[in-house]
Design a protein around this nucleic acid. Sequence first.
DNA 1: TACGTTTGTTGAAGCGCTTCGACACTGCGG
DNA 2: CCGCAGTGTCGAAGCGCTTCAACAAACGTA
Lengths: 350, 350
Amino acid sequence: MTTIMDVAAAAGVSASTVSYVLSGKRTISPATRSRVERAIEQLGYRPHAGARALASNRTDVLGLVVPLREDVNVNVMMQFVRSVTTTARRHELDVLLLTQEEDAGLHRVSNGSLVDGLVVMDITADDPRVEVLTSLERPTVLIGVPRDPRGLSCVDFDFAGAARAAVGHLAGLGHRRVAVLASPARSLDRHAGYAERVRDGFREAVRGAGAQGVHVPCEPGVEGVRAALAAVREQLPGTTGLVVHNEAALPALLAVLAEEGLDVPGDVSVVTIAASAGGHLPRALTSLDIPALDIGRIAVEMLVARIGGDRTCETRLLAAVLADAGSTAAPGAGVRAPRGRGRGARRASA
Amino acid sequence: MTTIMDVAAAAGVSASTVSYVLSGKRTISPATRSRVERAIEQLGYRPHAGARALASNRTDVLGLVVPLREDVNVNVMMQFVRSVTTTARRHELDVLLLTQEEDAGLHRVSNGSLVDGLVVMDITADDPRVEVLTSLERPTVLIGVPRDPRGLSCVDFDFAGAARAAVGHLAGLGHRRVAVLASPARSLDRHAGYAERVRDGFREAVRGAGAQGVHVPCEPGVEGVRAALAAVREQLPGTTGLVVHNEAALPALLAVLAEEGLDVPGDVSVVTIAASAGGHLPRALTSLDIPALDIGRIAVEMLVARIGGDRTCETRLLAAVLADAGSTAAPGAGVRAPRGRGRGARRASA
DNA sequence: TACGTTTGTTGAAGCGCTTCGACACTGCGG
DNA sequence: CCGCAGTGTCGAAGCGCTTCAACAAACGTA
């Protein structure tokens, strides 16, 4: 292994000079600098990360805690991961992946000086990790907002605002009965912030608009969507507007509606609250996009600031912006039960 | 920060004794051991990762290079990631996530002593990284098999064998015309190993069985499936057996076949080569499951062996096992064009 | 010319750990 | 009773780097 000493010898300078060339913390004459750089190049020198961490108390590694739950959509999660990692690299940081969410892991990497800071995804309202994270020796940024952030920085999408905007949009078009096809029941059970805040924002907006609304959890896949639609029909017949907060249910919903002969937006208006699907849906949908890329980027930038000594702690909620893609219109027939005997019809006719 | 010295002082021993308690590399009397352990516990001591790496030349971190391509299915990829990380933790290793696949990153983490070894996913037949990886100071295990492994260890699923088994199964049932709905064209364009080997295994088996076959790339989503089916109909009319090697196309395929009034397996037999979908499909399909969990685990275990000094280099191909779930039968009518005017029919009838 | 300043470079200390060789102590056989 | 092997503990060196204080050289100013 080539060390800083080898480089120093090759360049005819001392080790500290090489170090200063690398870090730029002292002025170095152009002549010396270029000799050192040439030596580094020729020897293929890479500083030893451990030695650097030991001496400087910085590892240039950031820990990323990702959820591996059944009920979080893996596509959405990967958007966060991607944006965190690319932003991290822009700041010369590497990313350590933490999946098991037991406290031991957090202690090990933080107090064991493996990372300079942590980004923790999928924070629930009363997340027990928040307590642990505050006691750590390294700064943390949360993606998601707990009830009590305890001096930790947070970034998230304004899910409540998104739900209100969705309802407002539908109400403005004249819809009086609206429903949310929400996250899987499990997400609500464990008090996932995004799930709760959509629900609360929805209810508030429905009340405010003097409309009626139901909020039904929805499992992914065709069967989940059928069950959710059945629940909507039972609990609020005549529903004409659908707010879908469930990426995994979208393709299935469109398939089921088509199968039942329901037109969007002729019969039913649909608004989604979702991370952008990357265009794999059969049709464009009016949506409140979750800016996953921005959220990941901001999380890293906040963390970098804190690592740099910034003591300010803030919670940033990114605002929802509605992008109209023509899947909403004035109320139609609603999500009435399909005519022509529904799902079997096509087969029978074939 | 509490150091090994603090622990030593609290336990009334020397730092080296604490180190030996931790590593178990020397015998320690039970009395001393328990005093040290109590001190560690009370002080909440965590060894400094950098210092440890510097002194021992081991980081206990493994680098995982993941692909972030459009054409690799994110669910499948996450299965690998999950199994690599959990296996790594079982071996007391942390995982550093590398996404940008430029050589600089590989050099930085390997020769910069950030990791003890690398697991590299999504290896193509003539992957330029193979050359780079052989020149690194740390061992590497590939998930995927390049044309020339150059002394690197590899693990992968036997995709060619899976394709042969799929064809064999269909041929055994009497099918004479079979098709593969394959990976997206992009995967083939970049010579992704899994894509090429399925194609080659398929062609070989079709020849061997004296049958006819076509291999068509398939983009994800409903439109992609429609296009692929159209290609099959044009290139090999009367196809009765479908081998699907494309996780993202499966739900869409089932939807399209249902929409066209084609029964599985009455009209068309379907075999998949896919990572297990987790049960979100509307119906079970006869499949050759890609054992992603095993592959990830084996990759880590091979890497651990190499880090431990093992010099043997091997390529392990995990065999395909067909799980019959009733989506295949003796040949039916085939993927003939839909009767009753196909996709518009339901809408018209509603 | 003599002095303070600025600029560029260096030696050495020290970051927290592992590990080697040495050492003290115990219990054994001769 | 001596010597020896085995056991448990320790001191010190050293891993490769950063950074501080110090210094030499070059410069501008009085």
